[in-house]
Every structure is written in C-alpha cells, then in structure tokens.
Design a binder for these strands. Structure first.
Lengths: 349, 349
DNA sequence: ATGAAAGCGCTAACAG
DNA sequence: CTGTTAGCGCTTTCAT
C-alpha cells in the first residue's frame, strides 16, 4: 500500500514539488508544457490526491454534512439524494449520518463532522430541548442550513415546506366533503413542522366555524412505528370515531391505513384519509391515497444551493425559504357515511 | 473561528504537547494527576480533536465508506442504519454515498473515499462490466466488503442472503398452490443477486418438472421505477398472462401490484404475487403481500462485523456469508382461477 | 513560471 | 512518566 505523493510525481516529471502541485490542482501558474509533463507522470504513477493532507493544510475539507432525522423515511432519503447531487457537482463530498430523531445522537454526529473539518452542515433537527450544539455551530462560523424543520431563535437559513398552508388545504378538502369529526394524527410537537401542521389544522377548522374535539388530536413520535399504529388504532376504535383523519407524515399515514384495515374500516367509505407528504406507496395502495405533496427534490436542491452560497461568502441575514405544497386528490377521501353535515360551508369551493 | 490545538491545551496545563496528546487520547502513559489537569484544560478551552490532522499523521482516518446501489430503496437504508450503528460503536464514522446503480458514479465515489483515507469500504456493487476500481481496492490493501451482491472473481468478503434458496421457496409455494404459468419480474441480470434469483426460479421449476415459458421471464433495471411498471404491465396485459408473478425486489413487487390494479386484476383471485424482500408497505397493502423476507438488520451487522475484523488484522482468505431467507405467507397468494393443475406435485408439502 | 522553505495539528519514536 | 524531535502530504508565501 505504498502511497504515491506529489513529491514522487514531481521527481518523475523533473520539477519541484510546488510546481507539480500547481499543475495538478490548477492554481498559480504553470506552463502548458510543464503541466502536461506533470499530469503524465501522475497518470503513470497512479497518483491520487490526498485530500486529508489538503484539508489539513487548507484548514477545511471539501466535506459537507447532512444530518437527516430519519434516513429510513423516504422523504429524507430523497432529499439526501438531491442534496448530494447538487453539492457533488461543486466538488463536495456529502457525509450523511442519520440522527434517528435522537438529539444526543445528533449532537455526537455534529461533533464528529466538526472534527472532520466539514465546511458546512445541513440538518433536520431532532426534537429536544438542548440545541446548544447547533447554536455553537453558528458562532463558529460554519454555515448551517436547517431543512424541513425550523428552530425558533436559531439564526440559520431554513428551507421547508408550507406546512400551515398544506394542512389548511388538507382540512378544507375534508370539510368540503362534509366531514366535521376530523382527527389529526400528528408527529411529536417538539418537531416544528408538526406544530405548524397542527396550526394549519386549527386555522382551517376555525375559519369554517367547526368545533374541534381536542381528544381527536394526538401527537406521537412517528419514528417509532408502533406508536403511530397504536395511536391510530385507539383513535379509530372509539365508538365516536372520526369520519376522517389527517396524518402528519408518511409513516403516520401508513399507520392509519393499517389500523383502519385491522378494524375493518373501509377507505374511504367508513373513513377518509389525507396524508401529509406524498410517497411511492401512496399510489400502490387501493384506493390510492389523497395527499399533500411536498416538492422534495426542490427542497434538497434549495438547501444545497443556499449552503453553496454561504460557502461562497454570501453574508446576508438568514433567510427562510418556504416551498408550496399541493393537494393531490386520489381515492382515499370521500363524503362521510351520513352526508348530512354539509350546511354552513358556503365559503368552500 | 479560532481553532484550539493540543499545543494550547498543553500550555494551559503546563505540560508538553506530547503529554497532552497522550492524556487526551489515552495512549502511552500519563499520571492520573497530569491527565486530569490536561482534560480540565481541554474542557476549559473547548478543545476539539482535529481528526484530519490525526488521520494525516496516522495515514488513515477513522472513516468507513458505505456505497449502496440505491439508498432510496428501504432495503439499503435499513442496511445502512445497521452498519452505521455497529461501526460507530467502534469509533468509526460511516460515510454514505449512493451509486444509484451507476457504475461510473460508484467509481467516482470510491475514488473520493480513498482520497479521504477511509479505512475500509462496504459496497453493494452497481451493475457494469468494468470492476477495476474494486479490484484495485483489494490490491491496495484497503478492506472491501461486498454486501447483498457478489462479484465473481473478486477476492473480497461478501455478506448476502440465500437468493437461490429464497427464490426456490417462493416458486415452490406458488407451485404447491397449483400455479404453472409463473412469471419472473427480475432486476438487471448484471446484478448478481438477480442471476441467483433467476437460478432459483429455474431450479424450482425443473425440480418439479414444470415447463418454463421463457417469455414470462423479464429483466429490467428496477431502480428506474417506470421500467418495472412497464414490464409488469406488458406481462400482465397478455392474453396468455401468468397466474402468478414472482418479483425480484421490493420496487418490482410494487410495480407488479400497481400494474395489476391498473389492469383490473384482483390479487390473489386473478393473480398471485410473491415478492423478494419484505418491506414496510407489504403489510399496509390489502391484501398484505406474501414475501421472501431477508434478515436485513443481520445483513448490515454481519458486514460491519466482518469489516471490523479485517481492520483488526484478520487475514484469512475471503469469506462468503449467506444468510437464510424466510417465506412469509400473507394474502397475495392463492390457488389460480382454475385450480385444475395440481397433479404431479406429490413432492411438495 | 518555478523553486525553496515553512508549516497545518497531530503522532510516534527516542531519550531521559 | 514526560519532553524533544521529526515528519505525515500538501499549500502558500517569498524569492528568483
């Protein structure tokens, strides 16, 4: 495992080490002839840049960190792919490590990334009270971009979707169908997007003068699949069960579908379901699921773009990018069993 | 962004730089008193190991690479999580980058990883002819572990599942139900696991003396979702369509389900489906899917374990670990419409 | 345009 | 047990 260094390349090419380096990395100035000689020598020797040495010398590596809260959620793996595509084209390597919604794990990961001299970090913050590791990042001058989830009080760029608007659209769709007893199966409220979806839910209900039954609103840590299922089951097993459910993310949506099946509830005849976040499976199910779709690819690309801009020295105050969602009506929503509740909604489409 | 070095810690603690390093990293020997002094100083200054410098000096970083062929496939994101869990507990950081089934991308990623002085690489090889970058890895002494997919002729450890046995079990299940016209919706045959699944298919059919209609065997690059759907659709739209289909991975399974729906075929009444690889959605669908389940968590852990052993100096010849699969019968398989084909299968359970 | 020299922050002999 | 010393491979002045 003898490792070829620039020194050996220089030797073979008959130039100094610094000239070889200049030729290989294209900075400073070298004559075309020398440059050719050097790259030939490098080729011949099988030279490979030691990016660790480069990083040490430059004080920073061409690494960017991506810390999704749950890489097993297709939402984040798709975001990740788009971030990777964009930053790799700029010569960065993306280090991906999932916090699995554990803030201690997130803290450890970020510590590691900093040790590896990453140039910037994109994170979907895990729920938890102590965000000091994120605050410190900001102070240290390492660009931080929040994705999907805001953290109030943290001065960092954030790229997210219009959670409030999305939730409003979902609920209004349900209301216009005649539903009144609508459940919200939501993620942990310490996750900002979950609080926004709750806000959208309440806003829509209030706007149309529909009373909210607070016992129909539940919050669970959706990354523990069992939780979501149990919560959904309990909700739907009640004698006064809702006629419709709005699920806060794709995992919860699936939990709701599963619980409905297990309880023998037909969708959409007995229960309408709208899920936040579209996903592959939504169209494989029968009926296909009505969802609030998020522009996932754009989310990743925007975050990458923003990070790249910061890395490029852009120093404006932090910005918040909020991407629009869209309601995709498929087969999981219909009027409630006894559609006798339609009065008083003239304001709906 | 002033960065605190060991030198400054040593200064504050009143010891030499090397003593400080010894105390901080726990090698060599230091008195308890000195050690305490040093770590207090480090704490006070907010010292953070510069793992880049460490890596440069040691000639290798505490990095391990993981190169799945498609991180968006839940199979690989789950494998990845398990690999990460295991190696992180040994102090390694896992760099994840998906090749997206593109061998050029895989080559580039591996090149990058090597530049970053990773200590070892775990890869699920993308299909393609030129595997020179993997061969060179072996020669350079960097441990390589293949996961999920073997590469004939490549001397590297491999951790996979019993694809042949799994496929045989799937087909025998279908045969025992009375199916004779069985389709195989398979992945690209340049992917070794796909050839093994094909082999299992043929073995089972031959073992029970059932003629194979080769036009019922299709191979597509499953990572392009549209391909799988189109292939499944074409297969099921034929007048002499099969009564059952065995799908080579979870993406293809879903494609088959979708195509069946779109063609108005009821599962399992008109068409039985068995999928290779269990996944979240298999139980959310109605009927739930009969599948060949793979021990995904173990797969990841075994690969990590093997890598760790190699890193520890274990020098035996490459091993091949093949983990058993299991048939999980759920609701997507039943006897074919006209169950008049059951004779001559006395050998089946 | 090129070369010489000085480190980036750390580890690892080697003395003492 | 601790200090001194010499680099790891690279970039970057500063001369020439």
């Amino acid at each position: 495992m003898t490792t070829i260094t620039i020194r050996e390349v220089a030797l073979l090419a008959g130039v100094s080490q610094s000239t070889a380096a200049r030729a290989l990395n294209g900075y400073g100035s070298v004559s075309a002839k020398t440059s050719l000689k050097v790259s030939q020598a490098a080729q011949q020797l099988g030279y490979r840049t030691n990016s660790i040495a480069q990083a040490l010398r430059r004080g920073q590596a061409q690494f960017l960190g991506f810390v999704p809260s749950d890489l097993q959620n297709p939402f984040f793996s798709t975001v990740g792919r788009n971030v990777a595509d964009r930053v790799e084209s700029e010569g960065y390597t993306l280090l991906i490590a999932s916090s699995d919604e554990e803030i201690d794990r997130e803290r450890r990961i970020i510590e590691n990334l900093r040790s590896s001299l990453v140039s910037g970090i994109i994170v979907a913050p895990a729920p938890g009270a102590d965000r000091s590791h994120l605050l410190k990042l900001g102070e240290s001058g390492i660009p931080l971009t929040l994705i999907d989830r805001m953290v109030p009080g943290l001065a960092a760029d954030v790229v997210k979707t219009e959670n409030v608007g999305g939730a409003v659209a979902a609920i209004e769709h349900l209301l216009s169908l005649g539903h009144r007893r609508i459940a919200l199966l939501n993620d942990d409220l310490r996750i900002y997007s979950a609080t926004e979806r709750l806000e959208g839910f309440r806003t829509a209900m209030a706007r149309h003068g529909v009373m909210v039954d607070d016992t129909l609103i539940v919050s669970v840590r959706s990354s523990y699949r069992e939780n979501g299922y149990q919560a959904a089951y309990d909700l739907l097993a009640r004698p006064d069960r809702p006629t419709a459910a709005f699920a806060g993310d794709n995992i919860l949506t699936l939990s709701a579908v599963r619980a409905a099946h297990d309880l023998g509830l037909r969708i959409p005849d007995d229960l309408s379901i709208v899920g936040f976040d579209d996903f592959d499976l939504a169209t494989a199910l029968q009926p296909a699921l009505t969802v609030i779709a998020q522009p996932i690819a754009e989310l990743g690309k925007s975050a990458a773009e923003l990070m790249l801009k910061r890395l490029d020295g852009w120093a404006e105050p932090p910005v918040e990018v909020s991407l629009p969602t869209s309601l995709i009506i498929r087969g999981s929503t219909a009027s409630p069993p006894r559609a006798d509740t339609l009065q008083g909604l003239s304001s709906l489409p």
